[in-house]
Design a protein around this nucleic acid. Structure first.
Length: 273
DNA sequence: CGGTGGACCTGCTGGC
DNA sequence: TGCCAGCAGGTCCACC
């Protein structure tokens, strides 16, 4: 579900609710996420203050007093939502956090592909999840040259290379497909077949597209929401993703859907070669 | 090593 | 109306 723009939107919407607040109590209603939630470390969070909220790729980091970090990944269907006290619990509310002003922060995740873990700040860089991440999409070092080196030695399809978090950290299936649409490249093209110019175009399209998506607060299909349960708007601006059979926005052709592995790829057969 | 396919889950939609 | 297949924004692991 949530890719970088959605996770960034969640972080921004959490800040007004959480910054400066103190955690009173943490309840784990369902520990069975992708990695089992450690109840003990969560209970040790009572009394900690939220000092900052950061994002790395698709990970959300609540920086807490006492040099602790509470790390979340939303998986496919995870949400962090702030609600008034005494709001009815919903099915799939797995973690409930009581704050000192009465607000409740809830982690809700029907598919339970998400992740919640607590670590000391100095150990953060040792986490496998974070240490294996590739370059940040907004890093000035993400140049055509940089990406060209990866594409030269890879025979994977470019859509899959863009999804690889160890290469670029933060893209998911929506934005990988949209980037290839913006740059006129077919998602099934093998990476090493791309020209220098094509790779340059991809590198420069990535931060532009993500900034645009963040400006529209991300893409909402059925279920992505921010901390105030508000939808994003970028679904209205998608060029190819989830538009198979619909008209291309630049030519009369119809958008096609193909399976790459077991995930869909979308493209315009005329505009993308 | 790199690349691929399946597993992990629940819920929704569309076809019959 | 019900049932079933297929699909969904991500990641990880086994296998070739």
């Amino acid at each position: 579900m949530p890719e970088l723009p959605e996770v960034e939107t969640v972080c921004r919407s959490l800040r007004p609710h959480l910054l400066g607040r103190t955690i009173k109590r943490v309840q784990i209603l369902e520990p069975r996420l992708r990695v089992p939630v450690d109840e003990k470390s969560c209970q040790s969070l009572a009394g900690r203050r939220v000092e900052a909220i950061d994002r790395r790729a698709k990970y959300i980091l609540l920086q807490l007093s006492g040099n602790l970090v509470w790390l979340f990944h939303l998986g496919m269907s995870g949400k962090l939502i702030c609600v008034e006290p005494n709001t009815a619990r919903r099915k799939h509310d797995h973690i409930v956090v009581d704050l000192d002003d009465g607000t409740e922060l809830r982690y809700h995740d029907p598919r339970r592909f998400g992740l919640s873990l607590v670590t000391r700040r100095e150990s953060l860089h040792e986490l496998a999840q974070l240490s294996s991440l590739g370059i940040d999409p907004f890093d000035a070092d993400l140049t055509g040259d940089f990406l060209f080196r990866f594409t030269r030695r890879s025979e994977r399809r470019i859509r899959d290379l863009l999804l690889d978090q160890q290469v670029i950290a933060g893209l998911g299936n929506i934005y990988a497909n949209e980037i290839l649409s913006l740059t006129g490249i077919k998602p099934t093209t093998r990476a090493h077949r791309l020209t220098r110019q094509q790779v340059q175009a991809i590198a420069s399209a990535i931060p532009r597209l993500l900034k645009d998506a963040i400006r529209w607060c991300g893409t909402s299909f059925s279920d992505y929401r921010d901390a105030d349960d508000k939808s994003g708007e970028f679904q209205n601006h998608l060029r190819v993703y989830d538009r198979d059979g619909e008209k291309c926005r630049r030519c009369p052709s119809l958008i096609k859907r193909v399976a790459i592995g077991n995930r869909s790829a979308y493209y315009c057969p005329t505009c993308q070669k």
